[in-house]
Amino acid sequence: MARYAMVLDTRICIGCHSCTVACKINNDLPVDMIYNPVTTIGPTGVYPNLHMTHIPLLCMHCDNPPCVDACPTGASQQREDGIVWVEDEKCVGCKACVMACPYGARHPNLEVGIVQKCNFCMDLVDAGEEPHCVKTCHQRARIFGDLDDPNSEISLLLNSERSVRLLPELGTEPYVFYIMD
């Protein structure tokens, strides 16, 4: 079985928001639904000794996803390969998952009355391709792959570089990892 994950290499991310647009366009999202914002921290420090980092965000595909636990309809699900997704037909738009998610990764789509989220582009992944945001990134700052495969690019990278996860204290066990400089 696979266990999918993503690494965001903030050492090379330039905050260009290309991933944001690629996701939106290819997933046909309304303008105001953003699965993967990219935030900027800084420049911090005082001119001219400065530092700046960009943090690309998306659903963390938590191993212990509070959003799934919170969902009263069973629309929110976690696949065996770790991908957390919403089955549109079952969703009633109660937003319990929105409130449960610590990462702002769930978005009510008012046009259809349901909540939607990043699903690691599971259709593409199932077809053996990379998620849109990964493919579009000129910097290759987003690395997607299978952590159960010890020889995958992502496994090798996580083994060789120090990485952190966001809000680890909440116990959600994110499968999105950040390499910071």
Partner: peptide, 9 residues
Amino acid sequence: GALCSRGNI
């Protein structure tokens, strides 16, 4: 294979 935000539209 990459495209920036504009490339995508």
